[in-house]
């Protein structure tokens, strides 16, 4: 059983681009610990030689030709931008 502690959850939060203040970190650590302990019961199942299932239906995931298609509602996409500069999405300085 992995030790689910605040340091680990803080690291996971960073990977998920989330940030927990101290009080929230404690709460999320407790809840995550509770759930991850619960799912541990899968260990009781013998899965040796069992193929993993990623999709329940086998016949999924078809390919199509990689061709550009016109989208005629461009302005409606840009209109959702929290900040924009003309036709560009604006972000804080990166470098």
């Amino acid at each position: 059983m992995t030790d689910i502690n605040k340091k680990l959850i803080d690291h996971i939060a960073h990977l998920a681009r989330l940030r927990f203040p101290e009080a929230d970190l404690e709460r999320y650590t407790q809840k995550a610990k509770h759930i991850l302990e619960y799912v541990e019961r899968l260990k009781a199942v013998n899965t040796e030689g069992i193929e993993p299932t990623a999709h329940a239906v086998d016949a999924v995931g078809f390919m199509r030709d990689d061709e550009a298609q016109a989208f005629d509602n461009r302005e409606a996409i840009l209109a959702n931008a929290p900040e924009r500069d003309g036709d560009f999405f604006q972000v804080p300085k990166v470098l």
Binding site: A16, L36, L42, V45, T53
Partner: peptide, 25 residues
């Protein structure tokens, strides 16, 4: 948070792969 944890390298096989095998069963 849970999802990021179970997909994190080092935990992937114990959680995600195991769950996918149980899904088969």
């Amino acid at each position: 948070t849970i999802g990021t944890f179970v997909l994190n390298s080092g935990y992937y096989d114990a959680y995600y792969k195991k769950a996918q095998q149980v899904r088969t069963l």
